[in-house]
């Protein structure tokens, strides 16, 4: 598979924009020196807790936010160097599915207008009739009756709205879709529907997929590769099999072990991390995870661990990287 997007040293710092006198809020380091590649047709999951910069990263890739440093190279083209008009044309190739199924659909517009919006932007709809036919096709594809197209979003449930948002994203046949926590606002019994739908659509259409989530269990089914983020940095990245079988970074291990599993018989040696995630405006020196890490040593304070490739497709940023099989997995096997 060839590379679709090459991300090189990407970073974003948000600073207090106000002009007022007196102390400013310290700048927030949301994304810090992130580099990786997304291959054509692959599903990559970014997993991390709130404030780890995963949503910012997704928006940086789509140039919805301008990076402070680093490059996003999409099909060989550096997105920072595109003009506004060029960028707008490039959006046809990259679309987004949002977390909030209620807020991300304009409440005053009909479903047909919402779904056709990207097509309209790129002049892909010749006539009214053709436009309605295309929308009907898309609605069927995402599992909604096409007769619903003249309704307003408020008449739909959260899961149905998320289907509408997905139909909008795939309407222009993009090569790349960023899905920002697309199921975390949905009811439990609806999440599986949406995950399956996105998986099916990806198989059918072959787009590359960046799936952002706070929960490793959700991405288990959809991702080919998983990247774990902590305080703006990628701490571990590998194929799904590698990550779930034996994480190498103690944070990945803790994330896996902390997720509550619907099985009361599983015996667990839970790793419960102490303390809170530090503020991204005040990231600890050296390894950002060291303040909560059970393995932390002096070197972790003095030296920031770089992402090292420890086996093919597998990188870890930890001075003490080593396989850490998950205990409850053994108990349940």
């Amino acid at each position: 598979m060839s590379v679709l997007i090459d991300i090189q040293g990407l970073g974003k710092t948000f600073s207090d924009p106000s002009l007022r006198l007196g102390p400013r809020r310290p700048p927030v380091r949301a994304v810090d020196q992130v580099s990786f590649q997304i291959l054509r047709g692959e599903a990559l999951a970014i997993v991390g807790e709130s404030g780890c910069g995963k949503s910012t990263l997704g928006r940086l890739l789509l140039q919805l936010i301008e990076p402070s440093e680093g490059k996003v190279i999409f099909e060989g083209k550096d997105l920072n160097k595109t003009t506004k008009a060029e960028m707008r044309q490039l959006r046809r190739k990259m679309q987004m599915v949002f977390q909030d199924p209620f807020g991300s659909l304009s409440p005053r517009r009909k479903v047909v207008d919402i779904i056709a919006e990207p097509m309209d932007s790129f002049g892909m709809t010749k006539s009214r009739k053709e436009r309605r036919e295309k929308v009907a096709e898309l609605l069927t594809l995402v599992g909604l009756p096409s007769s619903y197209m003249d309704r307003k979003p408020r008449q739909f449930s959260g899961g149905q709205r998320q289907r509408i948002g997905i139909a909008r994203a795939i309407s222009v046949d993009p090569m790349f879709i960023v899905a920002d926590e697309p199921v975390s606002a949905l009811d439990v019994s609806i999440q599986a529907q949406i995950i399956n739908l996105m998986q099916d659509l990806q198989e059918k259409k072959g787009f590359s997929f960046l799936f952002i989530a706070h929960d490793l269990a959700v991405v288990r089914h959809i991702a080919d590769r998983v990247a774990v983020m902590y305080l703006g940095r990628i701490v571990e990245m590998g194929t799904k099999e590698q990550i779930y079988a034996a994480p190498h970074h103690p944070y990945t291990e803790a994330l896996l072990s902390a997720a509550p599993q619907p099985d009361p018989t599983a015996t667990r040696d839970r790793i419960i991390l102490k303390g809170d995630v530090p503020s991204p405006s005040n990231v600890p020196s050296g390894c950002a995870f060291r303040t909560r890490c059970p393995l932390a040593a002096d070197i972790c304070r003095d030296e920031r661990p770089s992402l090292r490739e420890i086996e093919p497709h597998r990188t870890v940023a930890c001075h003490f990287a080593a396989p850490r099989p998950i205990s409850h997995r053994r108990a349940m096997a």
Partner: peptide
């Protein structure tokens, strides 16, 4: 944001 991402001018 969704409209921007959709490529609306």
């Amino acid at each position: 944001e969704a409209a921007v991402a959709a490529g609306v001018s």
